[in-house]
Design a protein around this nucleic acid. Sequence first.
DNA 1: GCCAATTACTTGAAACCTAAAGAAATCTGG
DNA 2: CCAGATTTCTTTAGGTTTCAAGTAATTGGC
Lengths: 164, 164
Amino acid sequence: MILDSETKAVELPEHHGDELRLWLRLLTCTTLIEGEVRSRLRERFDVTLPRFDLMAQLDKVPEGMTLSDVSKRMMVSNGNVTGLVERLVESGHLDRRTSDADRRVQVIRLTKAGRAEFRKMAAEHELWIADVFGDLTPKDVRELMRLLAKTKASAQKSAKARAG
Amino acid sequence: MILDSETKAVELPEHHGDELRLWLRLLTCTTLIEGEVRSRLRERFDVTLPRFDLMAQLDKVPEGMTLSDVSKRMMVSNGNVTGLVERLVESGHLDRRTSDADRRVQVIRLTKAGRAEFRKMAAEHELWIADVFGDLTPKDVRELMRLLAKTKASAQKSAKARAG
DNA sequence: GCCAATTACTTGAAACCTAAAGAAATCTGG
DNA sequence: CCAGATTTCTTTAGGTTTCAAGTAATTGGC
């Protein structure tokens, strides 16, 4: 480590190990929690996480959404959504119809049965999550929310700068 | 909202929306960054994220690791590691041999070429990550590290309690 | 020594996921 | 109107991922 002309601590070459460790820790937390939720969904309701996530998106919008909307919100590819929706229509959880206004567009909604099943799962899911974060104080939660919001904004800016 | 006998704010039924929102935000951040890293690895080095992750694990341990070790560290299933390793051995990045002491065990290491390629990728990867977290102050980074450590511990405790 | 339990890994089936190419409908600028 | 660009969705190929079942080697109890 050396001191530059304005007496700030700097390193050559620049060292970014802290950010890397932060990223790995963030990833570990998410993987851990995601795995836990996945296990519980499977053993309790015999449902996969992607299906639960898709139903969660649809539960927020009773009038339904297009496949593109789902794709953007879930941050997964279009082709992925096509298959996921196919299986959930097949199992009776989703209702799917072509838009009258634009025949390219497919609008999907939860069926009555699908909604009922989702609500049941969501109620337990919320308790699992509360338990997972159980050792954090309300202040910790607020502070994490704030820092993750900042992280999200920073990451989006970085992604946008690359894509142009 | 009501006030209980000790004048603490409580809600009935208990409300865990804050934790749920925190989880969704954590997931959003990770998905966002992971997608960015995935894209950059593909376009810059034509390599997938799981392969990069596996090589990163091996780079830390020159003498090599067993498949089980890799499986635990990467938090993925054994079967997954088998296929991943197979393809990386095929492409010449990994060296694989059966342990003399225990013939059930497969020890894998980076080949010279594999290590060289990984180091090249890792150097850029570190810059990408630094850029992604670029808007966070050093204090933000420290604070996030602390809170995520606490989160990890809490989640592990919760998972352990369920599994018994 | 021997048998049962455990451990390490592989295999198989189904699902998930991406990127890229393709098909169909719509929009846009002459 | 109409040809080209764009949007929406599907398809395809190649990987990744899990879970569960299976195989092989080792360990531990007796």
